[in-house]
Write a protein that binds this DNA or RNA. Structure first.
Lengths: 223, 223
DNA sequence: GAATGTAATTATGAATTCATAATTAAGTCA
DNA sequence: TGACTTAATTATGAATTCATAATTACATTC
């Protein structure tokens, strides 16, 4: 352990970027909604300057759109954006899987194994929140395991942008079973350190997730 | 054609983001160098507010780093960043190739064919600037041809960030010949609309480009 | 009563101002 | 001479102010 934690006093705008991004991800600020500078300034107790700086950054990240003299609005997660994003995430996770297979230590893999077991337990118990958490932990561990900072940064941004769509549709029983099976396959490849196969399976896993997602949207719209 | 073009009057900060980013890409502002607000304000004839907004955005894009109370510095393009970025770009171009193969019209492909011919001519004439331009046009056309906005945005950002490293090493005769051969293969797959093969070749093409790049750096360092 | 034009209000883009952290320069003592 | 203090200067983060674009409310005309 190091002697002291690095002093972490972010500037106001850095803090605000994170806070407001979370408001968007958590659906507290809803798509299409105007982001009123005045109200947020009061809510956060800051002046307009750092808040406006934060909005510029969030705009470059794609969470809001700015219109000159008309302020910021939360962006919609369109079906087209989802259709464009999932394939890119799939390729990033494929690459992450290939790299993680080589980079991860046996201890790291054991930790993932534990989360995998927790995920299976959550499935058996039909505990969706626990499943989602374990599932995300596993994917996150593999992304981190890639040791590739660029990959991590871009994945994080894309994941955050589409996470808002998670309310659009529920996980079906069929898809849940399928996802569990895919994770079993992934785990097998990771144990065998078969990087090409792990990558391929992760790519397909994300592609299938997207397909199920689209099916879910259409089903709800039709029903 | 629509009745009218959308009015495009960018705000100062949007203009400044582009201008300063270009200064960094064109190596006018060099890695490690401090970005003095005062001087840039005078140079661009704007106040500090929009300039500082622009710096926040450029920081989120990775072109500068901000240190609280110590301002902005241009980021270094480290070898690690190159090593992390090329594989990601390779996967993005692979995906782009697969999609473009399906999406591009015959007319689009004919246009790429023309740029390909221009590239070959530049090679025969040993005209490096003309080669680089035609080469970039071809890759750009394929990225655009993917019709995937997310892919395009992320590719653009990554390409811009590493473009600054182009001065680090020269294109060797061997690598040039190899690159030409790879482009011939790509063109063949595009003509045949073999998306998997085009994607695979584009991925390998970028990976080889990176390998040559690293060799070039090591050679210059050793010599 | 709907449509158009005008005034009042509000919100936003940008400049300026202010407080303070960093940096530099000057001074002091061993 | 050189390390350490301390004062002066500079640069930066953030608040405030200002000018103007957008919006709303209201009036007027047909």
């Amino acid at each position: 352990m190091s002697l002291a934690e690095t002093i972490n006093r972010p500037t106001l705008h850095q803090e605000l970027v994170d806070r407001i991004r979370n408001l968007v991800i958590e659906d507290k600020l809803k798509p299409g909604e105007k982001v009123p500078e005045k109200d947020l300034c009061e809510a956060f107790g800051v002046s307009r300057t750092p808040l406006r700086e934060a909005l510029k950054v969030l705009a470059s990240e794609g969470f809001v759109v700015l219109q000159a003299n008309r302020g910021a609005r939360v962006t919609h997660v369109t079906r087209q954006e989802l259709a464009d994003t999932f394939p890119v995430i799939a390729r990033l996770e494929q690459l992450a899987g290939e790299l993680a297979c080589v980079q991860l230590s046996d201890v790291d893999i054991a930790a993932i194994e534990a989360r995998h077991a927790a995920m299976l337990a959550a499935y058996k118990a039909q505990d969706r929140p626990a499943y989602f958490q374990a599932n995300q932990d596993i994917h996150q561990a593999l992304i981190q395991g890639s040791q590739n900072k660029i990959l991590q940064d871009h994945h994080k941004l894309l994941a955050a942008r589409i996470q808002r769509a998670r309310f659009m549709v529920n996980l079906s029983d069929d898809r849940w079973a399928e996802a569990i099976a895919e994770h079993e396959t992934m785990m097998g490849h990771l144990r065998a350190r078969d990087s090409a196969q792990l990558g391929q399976t992760m790519k397909t896993h994300i592609e299938n997730k997207f397909a199920a997602f689209i099916n879910g949207i259409d089903a709800e719209k039709g029903g």
